[in-house]
Design a protein around this nucleic acid. Structure first.
Lengths: 131, 131
DNA sequence: GCCGTTCTCAACCACATGGTTGACAACCTT
DNA sequence: AAGGTTGTCAACCATGTGGTTGAGAACGGC
């Protein structure tokens, strides 16, 4: 799971981490402050932050012993872009009522075949790489 | 990791599964067809599909031995809602240029204090639960 | 009825993940 | 200098995840 998009999704797959992100939208916070509401050790929270940091969702600076955590909003765009792209396609497809369309398509092909077109080649190059 | 949103994010944290979703936006497909491009066993793909199904991203019907897979677009909304909510907040905050604002705020408070206002209470009820 | 195709289930394995505790680095306070 | 606060790192443990292989269910074609 090396690519950034995967890391972002994985990071947000945990409710605790999602909650931390939510709380960080109102302002930076120290590790201790972030840990307070949860019933786990500070070390565990530190690990969660590392995951968020590796995903690029968060940065940690320093202020004496503290390490204020800052949310990086730009990374959200990565996800929204990916999601929007396929959500749109999926919805378009839904509204096209494919079943009917496919049937019409088959009939059309039959007619074209009748009119002396050579046998069609099956198209299997569709890849849709998700990078 | 019981809640749906977590399952959706986790499902999309895998590049192979993301690619399958991408390919499903152009139309339903059988397990075999989905497995073809990847260098893994059909069983592995079947497992991936189970994950997507448990997340509600996909449904499997049946047609003789085949099990056509269909993408459920509605679940994407769960994510977009969550993301948009916090992305907006984060961006607003970013554009407010908090550092400067906070400083101005402090100065303003100092002036108000000079003018006989009572001491302000700190607000710590902000929680941002992510359900 | 038998064979090939398509797919799932079960058992197993290597490795990642989320939690713990203990040690300690870095820093402010006194 | 000594001690408290804040946080990370390392080792460990239980559980989850993504892959494998093997067996078999369900079905169409001959």
């Amino acid at each position: 799971m090396t690519d950034q998009l995967s890391r972002v999704f994985a990071a947000l797959a945990d409710p605790t981490r999602r909650d931390m992100v939510a709380r960080l939208t109102v302002g930076d916070a120290t590790v201790g402050a972030l840990a307070a509401p949860y019933d786990v050790s500070v070390q565990a929270v530190s690990k969660h932050l590392k995951v968020l940091e590796d995903a690029g969702l968060v940065t940690r600076s320093r202020d004496a012993q503290r390490r204020p955590v800052h949310l990086e909003a730009e990374v959200f765009d990565l996800m929204t872009k990916w999601i929007e792209r396929y959500r749109q396609q999926a919805e378009e497809r839904y509204q096209r009522l494919d079943g009917l369309l496919d049937e019409l398509n088959d009939r059309l092909n039959d007619r074209l075949k009748d009119r002396a077109a050579p046998s069609r080649q099956h198209d299997d190059t569709q890849e849709g790489t998700a990078s």
